[in-house]
Design a protein around this nucleic acid. Structure first.
Lengths: 298, 298
DNA sequence: CTTCGACATGCTATCTCCGCATGGCAGCGA
DNA sequence: TCGCTGCCATGCGGAGATAGCATGTCGAAG
């Protein structure tokens, strides 16, 4: 039996609702529904009564709950004991990351890391890639999530680079935009569309660097953050470039298009550590969490 | 994390050997090796030192072991608590089965049932299908594993039938037999081969009934049980019909051949209970164990 | 009576995991 | 010293499991 079933069971019991538990667990409702069904089938008992508004523990469910909690607690205790052996008990982990990664990728990795290693002190600093690398060298950060562009490759002699994911740049257009049904588009087709750009941040500069040589988008509107940009796009005010990683849930009134292969630029995203420097256990472990989080964006 | 990983870990730790644990768990060595690797990867520690002769727990492994045992014990306790609620605590289960099923299928199901419900008193009776069904009706058995042949269909109005598996009849030939490399053969091709048959049991009669109309095998040798039959086959004394279910581990010097589609007869194997009679929890649960055991013979 | 909220389920793509076969490594005996 | 053996690791292919999406069903509220 997978302990994940027990975790799901515990959360559903806590909320009294499959849907609420699914939100909490970052699953779909159907997945949680199936997991409960699988657990019931495995144990051969009905754990919840299905009510019009949610679910309620049966007698069997109430019997199982303390056992499930005991097993999950024991699993956590086991992980912590092993962490102690490896110096993960009271360590610290200082992460640096560029803005797009802070939107979803890094928080997700930090969240799962925090569950696995609750006693490690965490800190997160947002910054541009060069700054992050300087911090790394200076010993002010343990690991940095950075992006490499063809124009600014990373110095692999000074840093150990762990490739996490290749991030595409997407074009956000309104749902009823003339190109919204296309699978891939070219920059040239957008020559007449107003581009909505973010504030004059380093991140935004990077985006503009992704445009092809000689392409001059008409820039009309300046929005502060991704949400605002997408809002403007949805309202039909123009189109915008967004990194795929910045998009967690797509607003229903915006369509994200991939660029034609020739125009498509992928940023390679790495986790960097200082080469040759001994790596604390917490850092090594966080790298695996980053890897898992990144795979969720495939 | 799957609790199976913990179970595997526990057994490997107990035996100090991946291979021995695999035998005990009825897995292949490679499966156990992978499970240990998966557990180590999940926890991020090395649990065993690999020695020339087996494996030995590391400090981390010794740390994990009590946690693993506690979790597994708690899981067992949870199942037992739920069983109590359902009257599975101190029940009894009387199983009847025809001889081939007693060779492997039913014992396997009983074994897993016994682990899940250790306090249920078990009994097993071997017999022919008609006798088993009579016992069932008379209330002398709770469930019967029976086979249906086209000539003797089961009475589905008096019994609830749960289809378990379709069993093929295989032809055992010596490894160097002229037909040993063929995928499928016909009865007619065996006209000149001595057939080794079992004693004059009902089971054996069933086998002969599987031969096509008018086919008269040359019968030379009579062996007492499956093992003896296969031994004779291995020695090149002749060929033999064996039900697929009777074969657990094939002797290396015997090749089992499937019959050509036209000659192939499949016995449908069912678990039968008396229709309309209220079914004790232990019986319902045993049916699922039978189902799982049967799926292992796919 | 319609609508809405909540859980269940058919379908499909993907992933995982097992068994098989093979490879590598360490000891042992000739 | 060289094969031989026992043991664990791993590439590969197929079968089973699982998540997401979309849809169905049921009961309550308006």
């Amino acid at each position: 039996m997978d302990t994940q079933l027990l975790e799901v069971f515990r959360v559903v019991a806590q909320y009294g609702s499959v849907t609420a538990a699914a939100r909490q667990l970052r699953f779909t409702q159907s997945a949680v529904s199936r997991q409960i069904a699988a657990l019931e089938a495995d144990l051969g008992v009905r754990l919840f009564d299905r009510l019009p508004r949610g679910v309620a523990l049966t007698e069997e469910g109430r019997t199982l709950l303390p056992h499930a909690e005991a097993m999950l607690d024991r699993l956590l205790a086991a992980r912590q004991d092993l962490d102690e052996l490896h110096g993960l008990g009271r360590g610290r982990l200082r992460v640096g990351a560029f803005p797009t990664a802070v939107a979803a990728l890094v928080p997700r990795a930090l969240a799962s890391f925090r569950i696995a290693h609750p006693d490690v002190a965490l800190s997160l600093v947002e910054g541009k890639t060069p700054t992050l690398l300087d911090n790394l060298t200076a010993g002010d950060a343990d690991v940095a999530v950075v992006s490499a562009s063809p124009t600014a490759p990373l110095d692999s002699t000074r840093f150990d680079l762990h490739h996490l994911i290749d991030e595409r740049l997407l074009v956000a257009v309104a749902r009823d935009h003339r190109l919204a049904r296309r699978r891939r588009i070219r920059f040239a087709e957008l020559a007449d569309d107003p581009f909505i750009v973010g504030s004059a941040t380093a991140e935004e500069t990077l985006l503009r660097a992704s445009l092809p040589e000689g392409f001059q988008p008409r820039v009309d509107i300046v929005a502060a953050d991704w949400t605002g940009k997408l809002g403007c796009v949805a309202a039909g005010l123009g189109v915008a470039l967004v990194p795929a990683l910045a998009v967690r849930g797509t607003p229903v009134d915006v369509t994200l298009l991939r660029l034609h292969h020739e125009d498509e630029t992928v940023r390679r995203i790495f986790a960097a550590t200082v080469a040759g420097r001994s790596r604390p256990p917490a850092v090594s472990r966080f790298l695996t969490h980053l890897g898992h989080a990144a795979s969720g964006f495939g």
